Computed example of a mutant assay.
Amino acid sequence: MDNSGDSSTHAWSTPVGAGVAGCLGGVILLGGAVLVSNDPGGSVLMGIAGILLVGLGVYTLVVRPRLELAAGYPATLTVRGLTGRRSYTPDRVERIRLLSMRRVGRRVGQLEIDVLDDDAEPVRPNDGTGNDGTGKDGPRDDTRLLVFSRWDLGTDLISVVDELRAAGFHVDDDR
């Protein structure tokens, strides 16, 4: 879901309705845990499930937007987590991959972004052979892996990948 009003900025996050539904479902489970207090095992399990569901709902409401793209020169990719926001320019992003895998009889997508740590040297331009000058295949040792699903971004991952590619980020995708 594109939650932005400006066409040069795109933001993606879990829909608000999903967070509210998670909070309400958790409260209902907590209420049910109190109502079935004559069954201690069931009450404890319902209570734990209710607390986890409320936590997930609060998390989805607090961590918004989860991913934000500000177009410009250079484009900036901002990721929001519980510890705050971190922004990355294309030279701080080593790799963006769109993966598609089979899970329980259906295809599930996953967006992986390898970003460099704050103290790492920027990515050197690729010479077209897949070699970024590190002498190794695959990600460098000083990267962090960020993984997003459709749940995290609230939209089809292909549209997110298309926006990232249009903003100047190099994207590997297996579709």
Results as ranks from 00 to 15, higher is better:
130 G>H: 01
103 R>C: 10
146 L>N: 01
51 I>F: 14
78 T>D: 00
149 S>I: 00
63 V>Y: 11
61 L>F: 06
32 G>D: 09
99 L>F: 07
29 L>D: 10
82 L>N: 09
149 S>Y: 09
79 V>R: 02
141 D>Q: 11
104 V>C: 01
112 E>Q: 15
112 E>W: 03
28 I>Y: 10
22 G>Q: 04
96 I>M: 07
114 D>A: 14
91 D>C: 07
112 E>N: 14
51 I>W: 07
96 I>S: 02
113 I>N: 02
40 P>Y: 10
75 A>M: 07
81 G>D: 14
62 V>C: 11
85 R>P: 00
94 E>S: 04
42 G>V: 00
61 L>A: 05
131 N>C: 06
128 G>P: 06
90 P>M: 11
34 V>R: 07
45 L>Q: 09
112 E>T: 06
152 D>A: 11
27 V>W: 03
136 K>L: 12
152 D>R: 02
43 S>D: 04
141 D>E: 14
25 G>V: 09
98 L>Y: 07
101 M>D: 14
137 D>E: 15
84 G>F: 05
49 A>H: 05
35 L>S: 15
142 D>R: 05
98 L>Q: 02
113 I>F: 04
134 T>M: 02
105 G>C: 07
22 G>I: 02
49 A>S: 13
102 R>H: 11
48 I>M: 10
39 D>P: 00
107 R>E: 15
28 I>C: 13
136 K>C: 04
150 R>G: 14
74 P>G: 06
56 L>S: 08
127 D>W: 03
53 L>F: 07
141 D>R: 08
76 T>F: 00
86 R>Q: 15
114 D>I: 01
76 T>L: 09
106 R>T: 12
85 R>A: 09
36 V>F: 09
101 M>P: 01
112 E>K: 12
25 G>C: 10
59 Y>K: 12
68 E>M: 13
136 K>I: 11
43 S>C: 01
137 D>I: 13
65 P>S: 07
43 S>Q: 02
22 G>C: 11
120 A>P: 03
23 C>D: 04
123 V>H: 08
118 D>M: 04
35 L>K: 14
114 D>N: 09
47 G>C: 03
51 I>N: 02
143 T>V: 15
97 R>C: 08
41 G>M: 15
150 R>E: 15
23 C>R: 00
113 I>C: 09
116 L>H: 06
65 P>D: 08
118 D>C: 01
21 A>Q: 06
91 D>L: 06
89 T>A: 15
89 T>K: 08
88 Y>E: 04
96 I>C: 03
106 R>N: 11
46 M>R: 10
62 V>I: 14
73 Y>C: 02
103 R>I: 15
140 R>D: 06
107 R>L: 12
125 P>T: 08
120 A>W: 08
33 A>C: 05
144 R>W: 07
52 L>P: 00
131 N>Q: 13
22 G>Y: 06
104 V>I: 12
50 G>V: 08
72 G>C: 03
77 L>C: 02
122 P>I: 14
49 A>K: 05
126 N>F: 00
133 G>L: 05
62 V>R: 04
150 R>P: 11
113 I>E: 02
96 I>Q: 01
62 V>K: 01
43 S>Y: 03
45 L>Y: 09
97 R>Q: 12
135 G>C: 01
90 P>T: 08
99 L>S: 13
